[in-house]
Amino acid sequence: MRVLRRWVDPLDYAGRIWMRAFFGVVFILLYAPVVLMMAFSFNDSKRNIVWRGFTTKYYEKAWNNDGLIEAFINSLTIAAINTIVATILGAMVALLLWRFRFPFKSAYEGFMALPIVIPEICMGVAMLAFFSRIGWPTGLPWPLNLSAITIAHIAFSFPFVAIVVRARMAGFNRELEEASRDLGASEWQTFRHVIFPYMRPGLVGGALLAFTLSLDDFVITFFTSGPETVTFPVKVYSMVRFSVTPEVNAASTVLVVITLIVAALMLRVQRPGQGGSP
């Protein structure tokens, strides 16, 4: 055995030292900028990139920055509404595509994929043109003033939900649905007691995806937001344009942590064998 071990399997590419080293370097380069940004949000120095000791004062500063907190609340509100509406719309489209045969179905699928494939900036300017042209009311009281951004977010995120839910439904045994109908259940009862329980992990996965898509979106929001309706990424952008400060690092770290938590939740839901994807 000891002799055999020295012999390198010609197909064991993942075992080659230089391949592993390459992977390691790429891995470090992918994470280093964000990890350094997060680490230096705790650095007790305003400009220097030399470590000067641990502090949380930039978090306090970010917390006391009213504009930043307001933007953060706006972002969470938009993300929450977006999650609910986009999940419902996406699930309905997914069920439609899963269940029915209809004329021009592939064209319809292409139409549903449009918001995913077109460049974000094109969608952003389209939203800007649309809301200003139809005279969408501005200056409404909170949270109605966020409606334009929310509508735009729903438009680009529900097709993603539809993809996730449809992938989940691909593993569903249609005979169960037929059996339910044969046994006299109505459309709604079949949905509620047969389809929905199976669909749930896909719904949760889709909802989490919709939440992060909305929370993270900058480009489309940038074009739909006004001076009164600033979201967290838009606020961070204006701060970054101004200067790179530890306060921005602190705020960004919070957002990264939220994103990672949502990603972890999503992984848990989607894990195979735990009622996840087939």
Partner: peptide, 9 residues
């Protein structure tokens, strides 16, 4: 998954 703006920043 991490915000595009933050990664660029």
């Amino acid at each position: 998954w991490i915000n595009l703006l933050i990664r660029t920043y």
